[in-house]
Design a protein around this nucleic acid. Structure first.
Lengths: 135, 135
DNA sequence: TTTCACTTTAGAATTATTATAAACTAGAAT
DNA sequence: ATTCTAGTTTATAATAATTCTAAAGTGAAA
C-alpha cells in the first residue's frame, strides 16, 4: 500500500493523519504480507526504525483507533498480551505456544461441516478456529 | 462427585488434601454441570459461600495446581482475565462477549471437514473452535 | 492567522497475576 | 502421642499490560 493510499485510508475512516498515525500506518500497511504484533513488539520495532520517538500511549491509542476503524483485527490468544493482525478478512490461526507465534490460515483452508445453532436469543457473529501447535 | 472421590482425586494427583483445597475442590467438582469461572469470580463465590476465608493467593495456587493435574482446563478467551473450565474433555465454546459468558459445545457438535497441515517441523496439538455470539 | 476539537504525551492509576518469605500444617517418622 | 519436615497458606510486595488523566501540541476549517 502506497503512502497516498494510507492517507486516504486514515481520512476516510475519520482519523486525522497526524505525524504519528501516518508513521505507524506506513509501518503496518506498507508491506506485502500480513503482520502480527503486540503493542510491545510494535513499540520496539518503531523505536528501532524511526527518528522521532512515539510515546507508548500513542501506540495504544493508534492501534485501538485502527482496530475500531477496521484496519486491524485483534486475535484471541491465551496469555497476557493482546495480539493484532493486519489481516482483517475472515480467517483462522495456527498458534505456536513455544514461540508465541501466530500464523494466518486462509478461511478457505478450513471447512466446517457441522456447527451447533446459537443459544436462543443469540446469533452467531463469527467462528474462529485455533490450531495449537507443538514440536 | 462425592467428597470421598474428591479426596481421592487430590491424593492420586499428588496434592495434599488441605482444608482449602478440599473446600475449593468440593465447590468446583460437586456439581452436575460443567462450570466456567475466573479466579475473581471463584474468589467471590467462595467468600459468599464459606465460613473461613481463603486467601486470593491460595485460589491462584490451587486453580493452577488443579489445572496442572488435569482437573481444570484453561480456556483461551480474548480479554484480560483467564477463564477456567471444569470440563477437561476435548470440546469447544460459544463466547458471548456482551456478557463475557462461555458455553460449552460438545466435541461431536462440530465437525471439521478440511484442515491445513501443520507448518514444517510442527505438529497439531489440538484444535479449538470459538463461536462468537451477538444479540 | 486564529481557533478549537482532536491528538499526543508523560506519568499516575488500575487490574490481573506472580513472587516472596514468614507462619502454618498434614502426615510420616519416631 | 510427639516431633519433624516438606509442602502449603497467607499477607503483602512486585510485576506487567493496559487505561486514565490532564496539560501541551497540532491539523485543518473558517
Amino acid at each position: 500500500m502506497k503512502k497516498i493510499d494510507i492517507l486516504k485510508k486514515l481520512r476516510t475512516s475519520g482519523l486525522r493523519p497526524t505525524k504519528q498515525r501516518v508513521e505507524i500506518a506506513r509501518f503496518l500497511f506498507e508491506r506485502e504480507k500480513t503482520f502480527h504484533f503486540t503493542v510491545e513488539s510494535l513499540n520496539k520495532l518503531l523505536a528501532k526504525k524511526t527518528t522521532a520517538k512515539i510515546s507508548l500511549a500513542t501506540i495504544y491509542n493508534t492501534v485501538h483507533s485502527f482496530k475500531t476503524a477496521g484496519h486491524l483485527s485483534e486475535v484471541e490468544v491465551r496469555g497476557n498480551k493482546s495480539y493484532f493482525d493486519t489481516n482483517v478478512s475472515n480467517h483462522h490461526h495456527f498458534y505456536d505456544s513455544e514461540t508465541s507465534e501466530l500464523i494466518d490460515i486462509d478461511a478457505n483452508d478450513i471447512v466446517i461441516q457441522k456447527i451447533p445453532k446459537a443459544p436462543n436469543g443469540k446469533k452467531i457473529k463469527n467462528v474462529e478456529v485455533f490450531i495449537n501447535l507443538k514440536n
